[in-house]
Design a protein around this nucleic acid. Structure first.
Lengths: 241, 241
DNA sequence: CGTTGCGTTGAGTACCATCAACTGGGGTGG
DNA sequence: CCACCCCAGTTGATGGTACTCAACGCAACG
């Protein structure tokens, strides 16, 4: 059960998310053969709830999540916590990590995870030398920013029900692009504490709203699998009101 | 009083913010003389409250605010509005505009403003050819992201008083880096509606909190000039509690 | 079989929203 | 010059959403 901490090479050759986002650009570039092998990577695993990155970290590397879920978060001195973004396989911890030495937030594993380290300087060189890699990084940046803009709107101007509906829809959407969502069913590893930290609510209130949704026949949740029974209704709640 | 709409060349030569951020990189680059003149710029003005950019816009240009204040915002279908970021002279409407064709938000003038358009393709070429420009753009991206992360924490996990104190401190800080803040006094063009849209509150509640601050001798506000009388207290409120 | 973590439920409360009336300054027109 | 309006802000009354505190159920696990 204990995840490996030894420095292995990542199994990019057989990776199921390699065709997405930034990884795709790094691998697919025309010039050299297997260009990503050059950059001194390592591959590690961590168990659920472990901290993967802290603001104090100033190592020379950037990270890509390969397997599992994680999230960016910030904490106030008194412990209140806000999740800034969910990370799924194929995501950089942040595209910012390529550009800047330090991130301003922490990253924590939601499930058991595996991730790859790459040398930042190597990646930066490729960003400058290959326009395709620059494009990909730019796209990642734009996506992260757009996601945070939406989350700002969510937190600032929406009710509890709207926020939670939004989160459910967002997660479902991200799964739909990478995995397959069958009949509204998809994995749901989020505890109510996570939902609370994402939506700016308390776990108790999250419980009440989720119960409402369940009683209204909108969702069903069992063993970390969520079923959206009435997507139209959820969208009506999540996009406006 | 009516701002000019004709296409003039920007007065970068005499601009007071030219030495900051992205403008600095564009101008100061080693190679060519006056490199920024190449890129087919124009210079325009708008009056307060005018919309400067809408999500539907898909022109071939990027914008830099040269004078005055503006803000990024998003709106829900029912009119609720969230300000995402304040823009001060020298800021790109968003660094994202260099990377992506469209922004996901609107930009509105807070005061009377003047701004410069530049051709996106030209700017992108310079980003790829001059590492200094790439660095500058990366820095702008990182700053915008960090600002939004903080705002997320603010909206999700802080009380009304904390949010407003945070806003005041942020504005003061940004002024301190560009202008001079004398004895805690600096320009304050924000209406309470703007403060509300920034903090996710209602104007009525903003009024109450600001009144509290005033009665407690923390701030003073007169004729669009804010005086922070007790910065220590404001920081104690704005950073934790 | 006790423990631990997570979720649920109830009761009471605080914070902030809503609605509404009112104030005061600045601009405009008569 | 004054009457008027409009906008921004203030203040009071009331109510609802979401928080806090607390008890309890339940499943997983050692």
């Amino acid at each position: 059960m204990k995840a490996s901490r030894s420095a292995l090479l990542p199994p990019c050759a057989t990776c199921s998310v390699r065709q997405f986002g930034f990884c795709d650009a790094l691998h697919g570039a025309g010039g050299e053969e297997a260009p990503i092998e050059v950059v001194g990577m390592s591959y590690e695993g961590r168990r659920a709830n472990q901290i993967l990155y802290e603001p104090g970290y100033d190592g020379p590397d950037v990270f890509v999540l390969c397997h599992g879920w994680a999230y960016q978060f910030r904490r106030l001195a008194d412990g209140r916590r806000q999740i800034l973004s969910l990370l799924l396989p194929g995501d950089l911890f942040s595209p910012r990590s390529v550009l800047a030495d330090r991130l301003g937030f922490s990253v924590q594993a939601l499930t058991e995870v595996r991730f790859t380290r790459m040398d930042r300087e190597n990646v930066r060189r490729r960003v400058q030398s290959e326009s395709r890699v620059l494009e990909a990084l730019a796209g990642e940046c734009a996506d992260e920013m757009r996601g945070k803009d939406e989350l700002l709107l969510n937190l600032g101007r929406r009710s509890a029900e709207e926020r939670i509906a939004y989160l459910i829809l967002r997660v479902m959407e991200r799964f739909a692009t990478r995995n397959v969502v069958r009949e509204g069913r998809f994995p749901w590893p989020l505890r109510q504490q996570h939902i609370a930290d994402f939506t700016g609510l308390t776990p108790v209130h999250v419980s009440r709203v989720m119960s409402e949704f369940r009683k209204a026949g909108i969702i069903e949740l069992s063993k970390s699998v969520l079923t959206v029974l009435d997507e139209a209704r959820l969208q009506a709640i999540g996009q406006l009101r």
